[in-house]
């Protein structure tokens, strides 16, 4: 095979990979598309709307202290999360301000 043939196969190969993955991308987009009528509640898995109506007040989990509000979160998990964030950011905990911690349910 000549170098031109290698070049040709390389070009065709990368095009095939792009085409197949583009097709998969289109398929995923179709899969992820969930039509809903106006006013219908948001289906499971869809991104939450940015301007969501304020949720009814949820009682704070026992152990909530200061400004940090814990929703559906154990104090132990919250402490772990805050410690991990502080460690990752390389900043002392007292320089960080946590507003609330909420468990995101799928």
């Amino acid at each position: 095979m000549s170098i031109g043939d290698y070049l040709f196969y390389s070009f065709v190969g990368i095009c095939v990979v792009f085409c197949v993955l583009l097709l998969l991308m289109a398929v995923i987009k179709i899969m992820m598309y969930e039509p809903r009528a106006k006013g219908e509640p948001i289906p499971e898995g869809a991104a939450p709307a940015p301007a969501e109506a304020p949720a009814p007040p949820v009682p704070l989990a026992p152990g909530s202290a200061g400004d940090v509000k814990l929703y559906d979160t154990d104090p132990r998990d919250a402490a772990l999360i805050m410690a991990i964030v502080a460690d990752e950011l390389k900043k002392p905990l007292n320089e960080l301000r946590f507003i609330s911690i909420r468990e995101v349910r799928k």
């Binding site: 792009f18 993955l21 995923i28 992820m32």
Partner: peptide, 9 residues
């Protein structure tokens, strides 16, 4: 899904 393009590149 755009990640697929990076995987292809």
């Amino acid at each position: 899904p755009k990640s697929l393009l990076l995987g292809a590149a």
